[in-house]
């Protein structure tokens, strides 16, 4: 079989990323953070939710930029 091209690898990451994000944002994982604890006065789960959310947006940005680049380099 052919070697894994950057595009191929990125495609796989792009397919898995949403599932990964979904798992982070549903119970039981999110349940771990649903406690009385606070971060700088804000409820932990609130901070966790928005932080993961922002991280996912960042990943989306990086992925789309890389994929766009890889598509240009790898004209099929």
């Amino acid at each position: 079989m052919a070697k894994l091209t950057p595009l191929r690898r990125l495609k796989d990451i792009a397919a898995i990323a949403p599932i990964f994000g979904f798992l982070l944002l549903i119970p039981p994982v999110i349940g771990l953070f649903a406690t009385e604890a606070t971060v700088f006065g804000a409820p932990l789960v609130l901070v966790y939710l928005f932080a993961i959310w922002l991280a996912l947006i960042l990943i989306a940005a990086i992925l789309s930029q890389r994929l766009s680049q890889a598509e240009r380099d790898d004209p099929k």
Binding site: P18, G21, F22, L25, A60, L63
Partner: peptide, 16 residues
């Protein structure tokens, strides 16, 4: 927030 997280995940997986 769930109403926005769903679309976020779908757009994260836009390539597929």
């Amino acid at each position: 927030a769930t109403i926005y997280i769903g679309p976020t995940l779908v757009f994260l997986g836009f390539y597929s």
